[in-house]
């Protein structure tokens, strides 16, 4: 910035700095996109078919539930809370759907509506207990995880009963057919992009700006008139509803089991952290969080290609989450 620009009041150097600002924004939140690109290229080198439309879409389809869960986790994290209950909530979705639908296609849509309501209610409960009743969200949602796990076990007696209908499964499995070149555009990919776009818009809107300000400085937000409890509860509700959506997709992918959602809460949080979302709130973008989910999924693919067994995935994930948080802390220290 030249001296004249500093001296003038108002905004100096706006125009000249635009390019530079873009670069510095990329440097602070863009790391994840570069990492993602590197992984894609690397996987393609190991396995050239990955870059073809079919396999690449299959990868996106596989990633969709986690991307959607990461968006939900983002809302909660950025407001300064944790949601550890989404994994077991996903399991609840699949188990409840199977039991209530019992293979009967006509029941599909009412049940889907019910699942979304369950997601919202569980999210609301998490939010209400964490804000109004002042139980730390880490504890609230950890408790919720256990409660839901127990409820599933009690309700199914250990082995889930019933079956999903074909039209329920088609949401996770099928898509729009007959599209040239890519043949099929999976519903799940479409849903992933729609939810991604909606999340971005939401974060740009007044609600999103109030949410992130609350996570950054609760007292300042409250004194500016933000209803901090309310925006935080809404974040939990969004997380719950998005967990329901992810559960519906996952029900279509795999079979009905009491294990479908296991560990997904950590995958989602890892994805956010990888995307630069700072635990404790106030920092990070939702796009980067979703890109973090795509990166994590790509990493699992890469590990597979390297012949590293599934059991090691947990270890890798543990290293990532510590590394990413450490890196973020280092970067914040540098910026002070």
């Amino acid at each position: 910035m030249s001296t004249e620009n500093v001296a003038a009041s108002g905004f100096g150097a706006d125009e000249q700095d635009r390019g530079r600002r873009f670069l510095s924004a990329l440097a602070s939140t863009g790391t994840i996109f570069i990492l993602l690109l590197i992984l894609w290229v690397w996987i393609t080198i190991l396995n050239p078919t990955f870059a073809e439309p079919g396999p690449f879409l299959a990868y996106l389809k596989r990633s969709a539930p986690l991307v959607i869960l990461a968006a939900g986790a983002y809302f909660v994290l950025v407001s300064g809370n944790f949601d550890l209950s989404v994994g077991s909530l996903v399991t609840v979705m699949v188990v409840v759907a199977a039991r209530l639908i019992e293979g009967e296609p006509s029941r599909t849509w009412p049940v889907i509506l019910l699942l979304l309501v369950i997601g919202a209610v569980v999210g609301f409960a998490n939010g209400f207990i964490s804000t109004i009743l002042r139980v730390p969200s880490f504890i609230t949602t950890l408790g919720m995880l256990l409660i839901l796990n127990g409820a599933v076990f009690w309700w199914t007696g250990g082995a889930p009963r019933g079956a999903l209908s074909d039209n329920f499964r088609s949401i996770g499995r099928q898509g729009i057919e007959g599209i040239p070149w890519i043949e099929q555009l999976p519903w799940s990919v479409l849903l992933m992009f729609a939810i991604g776009a909606a999340s971005v818009l939401l974060m740009r809107a007044d609600f999103g700006r109030q949410l992130i300000a609350t996570g950054d400085n609760e007292r300042a937000a409250r004194l500016s008139g933000v209803r901090v409890d309310r925006v935080r509860i809404l974040a939990f509700v969004l997380s719950g509803v998005l967990a329901a959506v992810a559960g519906i997709l996952l029900g279509g992918f795999g079979g009905v089991s009491a294990q479908v959602g296991k560990g997904l809460e950590f995958d989602a949080i890892t994805a956010c952290v990888l995307g630069g979302v700072v635990l404790g709130g106030g920092r990070g973008s939702v796009v980067a969080a979703m890109a973090g989910a795509l990166t994590l999924e790509a990493l699992f693919t890469w590990l597979n290609l390297q012949g590293i067994s599934g059991a090691l995935e947990d270890t890798v994930q543990g290293v990532i989450i510590i590394g990413a948080v450490g890196f973020a802390a280092y970067r914040l220290r540098g910026a002070r």
Binding site: R209, I212, A221
Partner: peptide, 12 residues
């Protein structure tokens, strides 16, 4: 402590 959300932009 009470006036600003420090990690947010001027405009926000």
């Amino acid at each position: 402590a009470e006036g600003l959300a420090l990690a947010q932009s001027i405009s926000d």
